[in-house]
């Protein structure tokens, strides 16, 4: 069972994740940030809120890679990988939503200002797009866990996973960037990754933060994968 070559059992990347997160928490709070109108110090949320979404996208990407690998090899191991990465991706997505709702209440959607009515916020293309993407992944879990036949479940959910991933493109990467929006970022390009959008002093923390948060997500996912593997093995030996 314990395959020493597997990355899941290595500790260097877990340590790297912890170090990068400690750096994110200290550097993210203490290092200088550019002075921006309306945002002020809240721009530091870039290291936390935005990183949640980046981690979610990377985890969903890992998941779809495993789904394709499952369809190529029909090895049930990849099916388990694929599912657990989706679950952790969803958790990060929900955290991104929760943190975003706090951040926006004090910046572009201040409830104390009458021009930011509920209907204006409800029509936000970025929020709707992200909600669609997350709901499609919720449907993935429901679909997957409602099928009892193991092979059928693995195959159908792998195919659905590819469709769900394909839906990420219009729902969070294309449509929200074409429509006018109160939510900043992504006007005519990729938000945060664009060198003109993020000041150099912030990129020093931002990129390590993305790596740190993503590695933490991968760590949680691998723990869940290992637990499921143990369970499956016990079922087989019974």
């Amino acid at each position: 069972m314990t395959n020493e070559k597997n990355y899941m059992y290595k500790s260097w990347w877990k340590i790297l994740s912890v170090l990068l997160l400690v750096y994110t928490f200290t550097g993210g709070l203490l290092m200088k940030v550019p002075e921006l109108p309306a945002l002020d110090e809240t721009i530091r949320n870039l290291y936390f809120h935005v990183c949640m979404w980046f981690s979610m996208m990377i985890l969903f990407t890992i998941s779809v890679v495993h789904a394709v690998r499952y369809l190529r090899t029909l090895d049930p191991k990849y099916d388990i990988y694929s599912r657990q990465f989706v679950v952790v991706g969803i958790v990060f997505g929900i955290l991104g939503y929760a943190t975003g709702s706090i951040w926006m209440s004090y910046t572009w959607a201040d409830p104390n200002k009458p021009e930011y009515s509920f209907s204006a916020i409800a029509r936000e293309p970025k929020l709707i797009g992200a909600a669609i993407a997350l709901l499609i992944y919720f449907a993935y879990l429901i679909l997957r866990d409602s099928i009892t036949d193991m092979d059928k479940r693995a195959r159908i959910s792998a195919v659905y996973n590819i469709f769900a991933y394909a839906m990420l493109f219009p729902s969070i990467w294309i449509v929200p960037r074409l429509l006018p929006s109160l939510h900043p970022g992504g006007e005519g390009g990729n938000p945060a990754m664009n060198f003109k959008d993020v000041a150099g002093s912030m990129r020093v923390v931002f990129y390590p933060a993305i790596i740190g948060w993503t590695l933490l997500g991968v760590w949680i996912a691998t723990l869940k994968i290992r637990l499921v593997m143990i369970k499956e093995k016990r079922l087989m030996h019974r």
Partner: peptide, 22 residues
């Protein structure tokens, strides 16, 4: 963060132990 990471490390250790028992 330290509390969460310690919890993760403990879980990791526990699962490693379970894997060795199997």
């Amino acid at each position: 963060l330290a509390g969460l990471i310690l919890y993760m490390v403990r879980l990791d250790r526990k699962i490693t132990k379970l894997e060795k028992e199997n």
